[in-house]
Write a protein that binds this DNA or RNA. Structure first.
Lengths: 122, 122
DNA sequence: ATTATTGTATTAAGCACTTGTTACAATAGC
DNA sequence: GCTATTGTAACAAGTGCTTAATACAATAAT
């Protein structure tokens, strides 16, 4: 899996999004132990402090938690995971519609584009 | 029109996006003279230097250009404006699909969600 | 001709982010 | 018990973004 980071936004926020995405999409499953801070930091090519900062953010949302010296695990709360997944999807949908309308596209044009893209994507 | 700025990304980049959006959506029309740096900076609540930096970015794309002391104008090149509009729309579409698939949604689910949202949005 | 407005440049300061480095405490694994 | 691994903390340094303040040159407006 790629740790694609750009320099236009704080790295730790991008890490949060990537890890969050891995959890809600099932790459890191409920109850799974996560790789250690140092391990993930090396893998992502960032400083351990930065990865630590990302984890701190993720704990606030309840998606992961720490057990002192035995590392971090994904929450067992599958409902929370699912609700965050839905929330992220809804957010994507809203943002997409909002931007397209700002660009001057009408509802019918948008759905047409979507259907067209869906056809091509098959 | 709102200058809604968040602190997660460089302000000057957000300004670039907002002004670009105003041009491709026709708020600032081809050939129009733009408000001065100082004026827009005040309106957006940012430092003139920051607005200046945003303008510098926009000139590189050819959307606007300066006439020494008579301010800045939007390009007359309506084709360029239209092609950028299309490019932005395509980008939105791609990003949306990409994120939704990353979240584990299938093509059919995505189109269903879009159609549902389109119905509600009417 | 004078004045005001334009874009532009410079400098200093403060801030958040990131890195590199080092260190500590707790505990799982042996 | 010893060792390695865990999360965590602290500090200095560098970088880019942003602001504030000031100034200058060109020219539109008067």
């Amino acid at each position: 899996m790629a740790w694609t980071l750009d320099s236009d936004r704080p790295i730790y926020l991008q890490l949060v999004e990537i890890i969050q995405m891995r959890i809600v999409s099932g790459i890191y499953k409920a109850g799974d132990r996560l790789p250690s801070v140092r391990e993930l930091a090396t893998e992502a090519g960032v400083n351990p402090n930065t990865m630590q900062k990302a984890f701190a953010e993720l704990e606030r949302s309840g998606l992961i938690f720490t057990q002192r010296t035995s590392g971090r695990t994904v929450t067992e709360n599958t409902e929370l995971i699912f609700s965050i997944r839905e929330s992220l999807a809804r957010e994507q949908l809203m943002q997409f519609f909002s931007k397209m309308k700002e660009l001057g596209y009408e509802q019918t044009e948008i759905t047409a584009l979507i259907n067209q893209a869906a056809e091509e994507g098959k």
